[in-house]
Amino acid sequence: MSDAIEIDVCALGDLAIEEGRTYVVADEQLALFRMRDDTVHALGAVCPHRGGPIADGQCDEAVVWCPLHAFGYDLATGACVNGDFRLPRFDARVEDGRVVVTVPE
């Protein structure tokens, strides 16, 4: 995407395995999740249901569950697995121990 920018968000070591953490990047609120294989997923940080903090949810390799009312979101797509919601999803990669996320400009 031409109007997207890549942003160095944090060190991989700032993220705990399969725990989320919230960052604000270029006006976007991101919840980052580090997998056991050290890949990283980036979703919107706010649950569209009732505004729950997604980064406080529990996740596995596929889904993160909002801690407030247990709506689950597919880490790869942002689609809700048990409701009619969708979280924004962003490309994220790890480069030299840094987490780099692509967000719209």
Partner: peptide, 12 residues
């Protein structure tokens, strides 16, 4: 590192 870091939506 993030145990007590907010995951609240940080409304900018």
């Amino acid at each position: 590192p993030g145990q007590f870091r907010t995951a609240l939506p940080l409304v900018a």
